[in-house]
Simulated assay, not measured.
Amino acid sequence: MTSDVTAGSDPLGRWHRLADGAGGSVLLDGFHALKHAVRFGAEVPVAVTTDRRAALALADELAPDVRDALDALLTEVPQAVYAALVPRPHPTAVAALALRPSRAANLERLARAPRVTPVVVLDNPRNLGNAGAVIRLAAGFGATGVVTTGTLDPWHPTVVRGGAGLHYATAVERLTVDELPAGPVFALDPEGDDIRGVRLPDDALLAFGSERSGLSAALRARADHLLALPMRPQVSSYNLATSVAMTLYHWSATGGAPHVP
Rank of each mutant, 00 (worst) to 15 (best):
T2W: 01
G8C: 06
D10N: 14
D10E: 11
P11W: 13
L12M: 08
G13W: 06
R17K: 12
A19V: 09
A19N: 07
D20M: 07
G21R: 07
G24K: 00
S25P: 08
L27H: 05
L27S: 05
D29Y: 00
K35Y: 12
V38S: 11
V38P: 03
A42C: 10
V44E: 01
V44L: 06
T50S: 12
T50Y: 09
D51T: 05
R53V: 14
A55H: 06
A57K: 13
A59L: 09
L62I: 07
R67L: 12
V77R: 01
V77P: 00
A80Q: 14
A83N: 13
A83D: 15
A84Y: 07
L85Q: 09
P91A: 10
T92K: 08
A95D: 04
L97N: 05
L97S: 06
A104M: 08
A105Y: 00
L107G: 02
R109V: 10
L110F: 11
A111Y: 01
R112A: 15
P114H: 01
T117P: 00
T117S: 15
V119L: 09
V119G: 04
V121T: 09
L122E: 10
N124H: 15
P125Q: 08
P125R: 09
P125M: 06
L128R: 14
L128K: 12
L128T: 13
G129A: 11
A131R: 01
A131P: 01
A133T: 15
V134W: 11
R136K: 13
A138Y: 10
F141I: 07
G145Q: 06
V147F: 12
T151K: 14
L152A: 14
W155E: 11
H156W: 11
V159T: 14
V160L: 08
R161Y: 04
G163F: 11
H167E: 12
Y168L: 12
R174V: 03
V177Y: 11
E179S: 13
G183K: 03
P184S: 00
V185K: 06
V185L: 15
F186M: 11
P190I: 02
G192F: 11
D193K: 12
D193N: 04
D193H: 13
G197V: 09
V198H: 14
R199C: 05
L200W: 09
D202K: 01
A204L: 07
A204N: 05
L205Q: 03
F208Y: 06
S210K: 02
S213L: 10
G214P: 01
L219I: 03
A223D: 02
H225W: 02
L226K: 01
A228S: 15
M231L: 14
S237L: 05
N239A: 08
N239C: 05
N239R: 12
L240K: 03
V244K: 05
V244P: 01
A245H: 08
M246W: 07
T247D: 03
L248E: 10
Y249V: 00
Y249P: 00
H250V: 05
W251V: 04
G256P: 04
H259G: 03
V260F: 12
